[in-house]
Computed example of a mutant assay.
Amino acid sequence: MIYGIGTDICDVRRIRESLARHGDRFAERVLAAGELATWRARSARWPERGVRFLATRFSAKEAFSKAIGLGMTMPMTWRACEVVNLASGQPSIVLHGALKDWCEARGLRVHLSVTDESDYAASFCVVEKD
């Protein structure tokens, strides 16, 4: 049974401007520890790839927050929701702390799709209830 559906489109240029204005603090606020390590590695090799990585994660977390119906209110926080790639390359969400407990108590499962082009990152999220 579908619990919720969320979608988000993110302007990569806005993410770039936020990084220019706030530096690493912006990424540190949005990304979980594993994502932050990946962002730093990608940014060091190719800064634009790091910007797009951050934009896709931002978009995915927004789509997920909409699908569960919380928006960005507790227990939903940027860093409690981590976007990872499975061995196949498929994006997935790993939850932490109170958000993980909240979703487990409701029997929720997440399906996620992310994409990016030069100026935009987009995500689509479907949350099912067992």
Score class of each variant (00 low, 15 high):
Tyr120Ser: 04
Thr38Glu: 15
Arg16Thr: 09
Ile93Leu: 03
Pro91Thr: 03
Leu112Asp: 01
Val126Ile: 14
Ala80Arg: 12
Ser113Met: 04
Pro75Arg: 10
His22Leu: 15
Ala44Thr: 13
Gln90Trp: 00
Met74Asp: 11
His96Ile: 04
Ala80Trp: 01
Val114Met: 10
Ser88Thr: 14
Tyr120Val: 09
Trp39Glu: 04
Val30Glu: 06
Leu86Ser: 12
Ala67Trp: 05
Gly4Lys: 11
Gly89Met: 05
Phe26Val: 11
Gly4Pro: 06
Arg52Ala: 08
Ala87Leu: 11
Glu104Arg: 09
Gly50Arg: 08
Ala63Pro: 02
Glu28Pro: 07
Pro91Ala: 03
Trp39Val: 06
Trp78Glu: 03
Thr77Asp: 11
Ser65Asp: 01
Thr73Lys: 13
His22Thr: 06
Leu95Tyr: 09
Arg52Val: 06
Ala27Gly: 03
Gly89Tyr: 04
Gly71His: 07
Glu28His: 06
Ala122Asn: 03
Trp46Cys: 12
Asp101Pro: 00
Arg14Pro: 04
Met74Glu: 14
Gly89Thr: 08
Leu86Pro: 03
Ser18Cys: 12
Ile15Phe: 13
Leu86Gly: 05
Pro47Ile: 06
Ser92Val: 00
Ala122Thr: 13
Arg52Glu: 13
Ile68Met: 02
Arg21Thr: 14
Thr73Ala: 13
Gly34Ala: 09
Arg16His: 14
Thr115Val: 03
Arg109Ala: 12
Lys66Tyr: 13
Trp102Met: 00
Gln90Arg: 15
Tyr3Ala: 10
Ala32Lys: 03
Arg40Met: 08
Gly6Glu: 01
Thr77His: 05
Val12Asn: 02
Glu62Thr: 01
Arg21Asp: 12
Ser18Ala: 15
Glu28Cys: 04
Asp119Pro: 02
Asp130Tyr: 09
Asp8Arg: 01
His22Asn: 13
Thr73Trp: 09
Gln90Lys: 15
Met76Thr: 04
Met72Phe: 15
Arg13Gly: 08
Leu31Asp: 07
Glu28Trp: 02
Gly71Met: 07
Glu62Leu: 05
Gly89Asp: 08
Ala44Arg: 14
Ala20Ser: 15
Leu86Trp: 07
Ala105Gly: 09
Glu117Arg: 04
Ser43Tyr: 10
Met1Asp: 12
Trp102Cys: 01
Thr73Tyr: 09
Gly4Phe: 09
Arg29Met: 11
Arg21Leu: 13
Arg109Leu: 11
Leu108Trp: 06
Ala44Ile: 08
Ala60Leu: 02
Cys81Arg: 01
Ser65His: 05
Tyr3Gly: 02
Ile68His: 01
Arg79Ile: 06
Ile93Ser: 00
His22Val: 06
Ser113Leu: 01
Glu17Thr: 14
Glu48Asp: 15
Ser43Phe: 13
His111Pro: 00
Arg25Tyr: 02
Cys10Val: 14
